[in-house]
Design a protein around this nucleic acid. Sequence first.
DNA 1: CTGAAAGCGCTTACAG
DNA 2: CTGAAAGCGCTTACAG
Lengths: 335, 335
Amino acid sequence: MRHKSGSVTIYDIAKEAGVSASTVSRVINNKSTVKEETRERVLEILKKNSFSPNEAARGLVTRSSRMIGILISDVRTVQHTEGIYFVERELAANGYSCLIHYTTKNTSEMARYIRELSRWKVEGVVMIGSIFANEDVLNAIEEYLPKTPVFLCNGYLKRPNIYCVVSDEKGGVTNLVRLLAEKGRKHPAMLFNQISASSTEKERGFREGISTYYPGQEAMVRYCGTTREEVDELVRNLFEEKPETDAIIFSEDIMALMGIRMLNDLGKKIPEDVAVAGINNMVFSEISIPRFTSLDNVLHTVSATAANSLLAILNGKRVSHKILLPTRIVERESI
Amino acid sequence: MRHKSGSVTIYDIAKEAGVSASTVSRVINNKSTVKEETRERVLEILKKNSFSPNEAARGLVTRSSRMIGILISDVRTVQHTEGIYFVERELAANGYSCLIHYTTKNTSEMARYIRELSRWKVEGVVMIGSIFANEDVLNAIEEYLPKTPVFLCNGYLKRPNIYCVVSDEKGGVTNLVRLLAEKGRKHPAMLFNQISASSTEKERGFREGISTYYPGQEAMVRYCGTTREEVDELVRNLFEEKPETDAIIFSEDIMALMGIRMLNDLGKKIPEDVAVAGINNMVFSEISIPRFTSLDNVLHTVSATAANSLLAILNGKRVSHKILLPTRIVERESI
DNA sequence: CTGAAAGCGCTTACAG
DNA sequence: CTGAAAGCGCTTACAG
């Protein structure tokens, strides 16, 4: 005599079908041996009642939550958002449900959510963004999810159960510099509109490119803020400081879009006078006049790789703790 | 003698603290009466073990999953993505976890996920996007979540447990037309780069505005595709067809950004010759030269309202089944 | 092929 | 203030 509650349980179904709860469970889970006749009767009653098995109960007894946690710091970053999309689609296709949390950039919030995920006994975690590569997160994982596979997209964190998938932005920027050299550009510069783990990598790639393909030349690197005015000023200053500049790599497509406007105002022709490249390969590079070359840092591939690798681990396979994904240059009219 | 498994349970804690599981439970949940001394001892052991109570078990016995389902068809729509963000933040702040699913535009997939959510016994659902306003979804809710409060953002669906929160885009566009009239514009046009439930509303708003503020004038409405070339052509054609046009409302900011470029090429000065407005109030309106006026359809407010209303219902309050949110015009240099 | 029973990890009257 | 017991809705040996 269970279920004095509202929702219908397998006991209700069992009673109505004149079988035991065990049999109902077997039918629901397509387990082994149930006489065809019985199976059909149960199935019918199941459908008639629109029966929905309680996942919490199932998870409790089988010790498998079939749940994956996704952590992301903020949605404003479009690439990260797409990341969730790929991860969720891939995991859902394999029978997992995704518990998602927006952590903000506050590291103790991140830790709090990791703890929260551990309460749901998630079978895996995907964290999207280099911002999760911090000590609070590391400690929280150590304490609350010491054995759960955790994937970090675009950042490094060293632990036996943490796996990192990273886009090779550094190498990508170096390749961009090489392309510039091949096209005969003499004085490339790189401009940033913000400082982050990612911008640091890009800057390193740029410096490496300069020392390799422009030996002896000093790397021209400048930073500013994200508004249109700041970008305009930075571009203007660049040419006052170094008028011979004939190529600019912008740290982000949106910055490149603004920068191209300013180059136009300065009377610089693209690509004749100045070659331009952006990073991210977003819609901005397509709506710009001219359309500009952009480094595709394949962030969706990063997420997709994380999802697939997690699935592999969940299926008992082994996976490398550090996966570096190549970027690719999408050439357009600006170089 | 429980817990032959891996994870530590309240029984382990109880044993170590020399109390009963009941007492441990009371401490964890800050329930009523536990002697201060006992409480402290238990708390200490809890912390020492990094104890994480099993949410599935808690939910099973309390019949409350503390879980909310979020359904979204695709992330590519930035506004919707922000929607999830607001919903998740708000609900998390109130102790709920969010189960998220990307459904694609396939209505039977939507139905499948609704069923999936019912297995987790979610206490509420938020669906983001008018695309969920279809019969498959309605039937699935009727069958699997007949009593769970469901919020639909930007669409209508009629059922006792379904609540709709909608941005008044129609009224907003009408207001935009009024603004144009007030500024002395004589021949406004409206251009669209896609057909959707939303564009239909906007067009209706435009037509209403024209018949009210430009009595006798025929509403100039044209459609094209999303590429830069198509938008360019549409703008060019507009002036061939109706050279006296002195104001254009674009159905989306990104389209306005492209359109402004083309107006420039045509030698039209903004706002002197042609006034321009976009819709969505996104970053595009800020990076454009000139910055343009945009109708903020407050999609984040739609989501936030859905989240707050859901919370209200969860707390036993009553909420209107249909909430219409006013839009607001953000004026910039283009009118 | 099928059922009775135990148990997953919790909470909550109930009794003391 | 505290513990024993029952039960949430399932699954899974075990026995037949």
